[in-house]
């Protein structure tokens, strides 16, 4: 193997700055997409747990549509296809006037994709609760909305912290796919460093270390959340 090492390249300008900006971009789009995914995923998951057949048909369609198309292609659909299919004015606005179109598109695509996975967990969490909880809530005079708001959702969320942790970890990794529509996140930045300097070993090692650090941090934070949120008397 014939390779000249130069670890200093990682700490020289502009490459150090590229790494920092790339890391911040990865964290930013992942966190914002995660908020989108939690919000929409909770709504879809709750609706999916109801008994209305029409609503369940809709939620099942949402889930299977977003789960059965590769995320890379979903990014392309939101970025290249949707602006063409919208009425002219809206399409033009998306293409010309929306600030940071690639970043915004990546967040929409990543958020809606992850929402379908969160929805599955939320509805499974609600289904896993003892049926007595729903009955008791209704029997004590709560409306269906109140029963979900005060009894079912709070308990379900505490049960599904471990699978949600895994989805949360995945969103950071999936955010790398945003590079295909031109978002300069961490993977794109290190690939850029590699093609400018030919120091691929150093660049990809840096990315690996940063991704592993993110994963360890998320795991630790979520373990804390799990402990704090554990329902007393269970486990």
């Amino acid at each position: 193997m014939n390779y000249s090492w130069n670890w200093a390249v990682l700490f020289s300008e502009p490459y150090l700055q590229w790494l920092v900006w790339g890391t911040l971009m990865t964290i930013a789009i992942s966190l914002v997409s995660w908020v989108v995914a939690l919000a929409i995923g909770t709504v879809v998951g709750v609706l999916h747990s109801t008994e209305n057949a029409w609503i369940r048909l809709l939620t099942r369609s949402y889930i299977s549509l977003f789960r059965n198309i590769p995320l890379l292609l979903q990014m392309f659909l939101w970025f290249f296809v949707v602006p063409e299919l919208l009425p002219d004015a809206a399409g033009t606005w998306l293409k010309r006037d929306l600030p940071y179109p690639a970043v915004a598109t990546a967040i929409v695509a990543l958020g809606l994709f992850t929402a379908s996975r969160v929805a599955v967990q939320v509805s499974a969490g609600i289904a896993a609760l003892p049926p007595g909880q729903r009955m008791a809530a209704i029997a004590s005079g709560l409306s269906m909305v109140q029963a979900y708001r005060f009894v079912l959702i709070p308990q379900a969320f505490r049960v599904i912290v471990p699978p949600l942790t895994s989805e949360f970890l995945t969103i950071f990794k999936n955010s790398s796919i945003a590079m295909t529509i031109g978002v300069f996140e961490l993977t794109a930045r290190t690939q850029q460093i590699e093609s400018y300097t030919y120091q691929g070993f150093e660049a990809f090692t840096a990315a690996t270390v940063i991704y592993v650090t993110i994963a360890l941090t998320v795991t630790m934070v979520m373990r804390h959340v799990e402990r704090r949120g554990a329902i007393p008397g269970t486990l």
């Binding site: 193997m1 014939n2 390779y3 970890l169 950071f172 990794k173 999936n174 955010s175 790398s176 796919i177 590079m179 993977t187 290190t190 690939q191 590699e194 691929g200 070993f201 990809f204 990315a207 690996t208 991704y211 592993v212 994963a215 360890l216």
Partner: peptide, 24 residues
């Protein structure tokens, strides 16, 4: 755990870079 912590795209880049280097 190492492989599960990093994105597949990064793994693809790693080996796209490493394999020719190792083979020469």
């Amino acid at each position: 755990n190492g492989f599960r912590a990093i994105p597949l795209i990064l793994v693809i880049f790693w080996f796209y870079f490493l394999v020719p280097l190792a083979v020469g």
